[in-house]
């Protein structure tokens, strides 16, 4: 079975209603001994962790701790950086995504990404969403495409706000709306995993709350990994939290445990504001 690339028949995406305990029962991504080097400098050291499906996993840690670098391993975004080298194995559905046989473009349609700064294409709202399904050949007709656009915008909680102006440029939206547009764009290609790299750090508290509400909604269908500098945000939106420091994974556990009773002194010092 071809496990890389969007499954065309799977219009239902993944099932709904999975609760938290079920969500934590099996991993979607299994990372083993992952190290990342930028030329001679090692940025991530031998990280092994499991990322669960239908759950939000938060990666936290001080600036330069390797959390964003690690996140970028999950859809091979480090391939695009000159001099970057990733070692170790990252299994999705039993397949090692670091294998040379894996097409990174198809991989990135399975593992969508949302960035710190909203980055809509300089196209209409409609085309921002339609772009991915079109190039991946996921739709056969205009009606199908319309349906995908509407469904994606609905899931991103943006449909009601933009349904009457789909032909306007994506960049005409507010910052928070643009970020939800980017999330809608990511889910339009029916990914299994959504990576978010500080998705709210450029947004005001109201727009942040809307994104967090959206993340909570998306968690029912997707595996979500979020890098955030806001510990409160990690505590609010995630079920699992991993703490990185100096390129090492210090501690990973249920979010409740990490924020009420961390096992490691370095985690405690960081989340209580005693670092350095």
């Amino acid at each position: 079975m071809d496990t890389v690339g969007p499954a065309k028949a799977d219009l239902a995406l993944t099932g709904e209603g999975a609760d938290k305990t079920q969500a934590l029962t099996y991993p979607r991504i299994d990372c083993r001994n992952v190290s990342v080097y930028y030329d001679d400098k090692q940025a991530v050291f031998d990280v092994s962790l499991a990322i669960h499906d239908r759950a939000v996993t938060a990666l936290i840690g001080p600036s330069g701790c390797g959390k964003s670098t690690f996140l970028r391993c999950l859809n091979r975004m480090n391939d695009t950086i000159e001099g970057a080298k990733v070692t170790g194995d990252i299994f999705m559905e039993g397949e090692n995504i670091n294998s040379p046989d894996v097409d990174p473009v198809l991989l990135r349609s399975r593992v969508g990404m949302v960035f710190q700064k909203p980055n809509p294409f300089p196209k209409s709202i409609y085309d921002n969403i339609a772009y991915g399904p079109r190039i991946h050949g996921m739709v056969d007709s205009r009606e199908d495409l319309d349906a995908v656009v509407e469904k994606s915008l609905r899931r991103a909680g943006l449909w009601e706000e933009v349904k009457d102006r789909l032909s306007q440029p994506g960049t005409s939206l507010s910052g928070g709306q643009q970020q939800r547009l980017c999330i809608a764009r990511a889910i339009a290609v029916r990914p299994e995993v959504i990576l978010m790299d500080e998705p709210c750090s450029a947004l005001d508290p109201i727009a942040t709350a809307r994104i967090e509400e959206l993340i909570d909604e998306l968690r029912k269908r997707y595996c979500i990994v979020i890098v955030t500098h806001s510990m409160q945000q990690a505590a609010r939106v995630s079920q699992r939290t991993a703490f990185f420091h100096l390129g090492n994974l210090v501690e990973m556990g249920d979010t409740d445990q990490i924020f009420t009773n961390p096992r490691e002194r370095r985690t405690e010092d960081y989340i209580t504001g005693r670092f350095g």
Binding site: M231, Q232, A235, F259, T260, N261, P262, T267, E268, I271, T272
Partner: peptide, 9 residues
């Protein structure tokens, strides 16, 4: 201050 961990406890 949104206390965490030992501070929260």
């Amino acid at each position: 201050r949104q206390p965490m961990a030992h501070d929260l406890r």
